[in-house]
């Protein structure tokens, strides 16, 4: 029993890191622009398809495609920003939510029309096998994904705290008007934040694909998980997102092991409502 508990805590932690990485892009966009992208899950789904096709045609392992998908997705983010987000920043909230919902419906069904509902999984993957640490078995694909997640988060954290651009981003996030008075081009910061958020999605998607498959409907799951993490983290920076991801991952793993696997989403959702109820600024919010 103890072994099972230990094994699943580890499973949960590894998955939690991945969840945190998936949510990180959303958290960054939310932090800087104060916009919740409802199409986030669909962005993840499209990125997973990109990973699949690139890996198939270039015959390279899925994990390596992150190097290609992340820049593509950065540009994709800029384009979406210019076409849609730029027009709704600062308008009334209903329009913001509605526009991204439109995007969500559109992307999901374009994917269906283009690639049909057939689930796609990577064929070439070097990340197979597992390492055994005492009583715990750790699959290498999950371990790599978790390590990359933490690495990406550290890199982002360093970027936000040690570079001029990063500091400008943070300033925009803290006080848009003051930042604009200081000569920061707020619009450009928004575009940067959106592009960066998407690039992170690109990285996350590549590593999810090392152990998951994608179909046009898979966006909803990833969207839901990301929203919950962002609510939990509040405006708590990178560490808040990581901690929230870990909590979510462990709650899920333990729930599946010791109760009913079918109810895991329900448990996570109750957590979501509970946090909104008692700590509406998130568990790790600074404001």
């Amino acid at each position: 029993m103890l072994e099972l508990l230990l094994q699943n805590l580890v499973n949960g932690i590894l998955m939690g890191c991945v969840y945190a990485l998936v949510a990180l892009g959303l958290a960054l966009q939310f932090g800087v622009m104060d916009i919740i992208n409802f199409a986030h899950g669909e962005f993840v789904m499209i990125a997973m398809y990109l990973v699949f096709w690139i890996s198939l045609y270039l015959a390279i392992p899925g994990s390596l495609t992150s190097l290609i998908v992340a820049p593509i997705y950065f540009v994709f983010g800029l384009v979406v920003y210019k076409l849609v987000i730029d027009r709704i920043v600062g308008t009334y909230p209903l329009a913001q939510i509605a526009a991204t919902i439109g995007l969500m419906v559109l992307l999901r069904n374009l994917a269906l029309a283009a690639w049909r509902a057939q689930p796609r999984g990577l064929q070439y993957e070097v990340l197979r096998g597992s390492v055994t640490l005492g009583p715990v078995v750790v699959p290498i694909s999950r371990l790599t994904a978790a390590l990359v997640s933490v690495g990406t988060m550290l890199a982002l954290h360093w970027f936000l705290t040690h570079t001029r651009l990063g500091l400008a981003l943070r300033a925009t996030s803290d006080d848009m008007q003051a930042a604009s008075l200081l000569g920061i081009n707020v619009r450009r910061m928004f575009a940067l934040a959106f592009g960066l958020g998407c690039a992170i999605i690109g990285i996350a998607a590549a590593f999810i694909m090392t152990f998951q498959q994608v179909n046009p409907e898979s966006g909803l799951t990833w969207g839901l998980i990301s929203w919950i993490i962002v609510v939990m983290a509040g405006l708590g920076g990178v560490s808040g997102v990581l901690l929230s991801g870990l909590i979510l991952g462990m709650v899920e793993a333990l729930e599946i092991t010791f109760w009913d696997p079918r109810a895991s989403l329900a448990v996570m959702y109750s957590l979501f409502i509970l946090i909104l109820w008692v700590k509406p600024r998130g568990l790790f919010g600074r404001r």
Binding site: E3, L4, Q7, N8, N11, M15, P139, R142, F211, Q212, E217, S218, T221, W222, I225, E252, A253, I256, T257, D260, P261, R262, S264, L265
Partner: peptide, 20 residues
């Protein structure tokens, strides 16, 4: 008899239940 949602994000918890 274990029932799980078909769109489950990670199968490790189920496999570890099987191992147990």
């Amino acid at each position: 008899q274990i029932e799980y949602p078909y769109d489950i994000a990670d199968a490790s918890p189920i496999v570890s239940r099987l191992m147990e």
